[in-house]
Nucleic acid binder design. Structure first.
Lengths: 152, 152
DNA sequence: ATCAATCGTCAGCAATACTGACGATCAGCG
DNA sequence: CGCTGATCGTCAGTATTGCTGACGATTGAT
């Protein structure tokens, strides 16, 4: 009995057995800690994410940055406004395509970014230290693998 | 040279080497898929999260449910309003403490929940299938471990 | 009996995603 | 060269959600 249709297959999962719950709350705790550590620099983890992409080498348009981070391009405007006001990034029109803004770190921005990135790295390493070095890189490998499969 | 202070220790991480990025985007993709699969039932993954806690056995107050999910108690009001309007949950005043609402699944709600939970489980298992059974449970184990440490 | 605390609710505010528009610019095509 | 459609950054408007602060009802401790 009790195998007449799919609903009966499901057992009741505790909320901490659900991958979505685990991902969301783990991210939440890590972001909370990162934001706290970044507060003295007047940056959020959201800001740092943008700076990381901008610092990543080749010149990026606003839309590139937004797309990588999964932020809407209309939200990116205000985010960059604040960073520009703080003297951390600069916009200039692309020479290849003058519709685009190329976003770059200023000299000050580079320094702030280096500090922020080191802070973020410290928080992250402290966060995962109970997993051991192997466990931590194993976790990263697994997550990267999931993202790669889903976006190919 | 270049070891005069901490900023220089940081190397530039690609965004997909940052744990916060990986957690956030992995969660995002999984939630997107779950919401899509749940749409025919007129439920979101947010709703299902609440139902999971409510279905989890002992009678729960609204605040209990909200706290477990990390949802604000003021947002839980509207969430439960919708589920109650749909005939999926019922509120009744607790007999031990009449300030509290005990939230329970209705008979209909139990059926909808079973279907939704099975759907969610299917989506999740499909999502992690590239990791293999070991990899998937290893991932869950690691995330649970991080959450346990941070909340003890 | 009184008083502080808790619960569910509501109103108001801030942050963010999303839509749809706009001007400027580009690429493709004749 | 001049059109036409698409793209980029921007802005206005709307919806969702978290947070604060309040409130009435209720509880528990004194």
């Amino acid at each position: 009995m009790s195998n007449h249709s799919s609903p009966e297959r499901a057992s009741v999962r505790r909320h901490d057995e659900v991958l979505g719950y685990l991902l969301k709350h783990t991210h939440f705790v890590l972001e909370e800690r990162t934001d706290a550590a970044l507060a003295p620099l007047r940056l959020t983890s959201r800001d740092l994410g943008a700076l990381r992409v901008i610092a990543g080498g080749e010149a990026r348009s606003q839309q590139d940055v937004a797309a990588v981070l999964g932020v809407d391009r209309t939200s990116m405007v205000a985010l960059l406004d604040a960073l520009e006001r703080a003297g951390i990034v600069a916009r200039r029109a692309s020479e290849q395509d003058r519709r685009r803004n190329v976003v770059e770190l200023t000299e000050t921005g580079r320094k702030v970014f280096n500090q922020a990135e080191q802070t973020s790295l410290d928080v992250e390493q402290n966060f995962v230290k109970t997993l051991g070095t192997d466990g931590a890189s194993e976790l990263q490998r697994a997550l990267r693998s999931l993202l790669r499969v889903t976006s190919q």
